[in-house]
Amino acid sequence: MAVSVVAKFVADEWFKIMAILCFLIFVVSLTVELRVDNVLVGFFSLSGLLWGIGEMACRPYREILVEDFAGPGWGKLSGRPRRLNAPGLILFALSISVAALGCLRGWPMVSAMVSAI
């Protein structure tokens, strides 16, 4: 069964798409007055942006040479295997911290909605 080109692109590059969309939402939260709390939207979009950049840091492009077992010669494997590294771990920790700040900022709004019910 063939996989569509768009589905393969999204599956391989979801973290870049997420980082770009979160960056755009972050810029909108800084420049446009929204109907919700701009700081809350800014926290969560910044968290998504940091997570996407952290995924990019953990997926550098790699190429290795492997011996061809079917015949004489060598083959080349290339791709973006995920390996956790220090910059990615730092960005993930920052992302979780910013999301926690967003949760703290949004808690009074959630508790007010629950008490109104």
Rank of each mutant, 00 (worst) to 15 (best):
G88E: 00
A93Y: 06
L101N: 06
A99S: 04
V98D: 02
S29V: 00
L50K: 02
G75Y: 14
C58V: 08
G73T: 04
D12I: 11
A70Q: 15
W74Q: 11
V98L: 03
V10R: 03
C58H: 08
L34N: 03
Y61D: 06
R80H: 08
S45L: 06
I25D: 10
L46Y: 01
F44S: 01
E33T: 15
S78A: 12
F15R: 04
P81N: 09
A57K: 03
Y61W: 08
D68M: 09
R62F: 11
L94E: 04
D37C: 04
K8D: 13
A7D: 14
F9N: 00
P60Y: 03
F92G: 14
V32K: 07
A70Y: 09
W51P: 13
A99E: 05
L24H: 07
R59D: 00
S45V: 06
L21D: 01
D12F: 12
P81H: 09
F15H: 06
K16L: 08
F44T: 05
F44K: 02
F26Y: 02
D68L: 13
S97V: 14
L77D: 05
L40P: 04
F9S: 05
P60Q: 02
L77N: 06
G79E: 02
K16N: 12
D37I: 00
L46P: 06
I64Q: 10
F44E: 03
I64R: 13
F9L: 05
W74F: 14
F9Y: 04
E55A: 04
V39E: 15
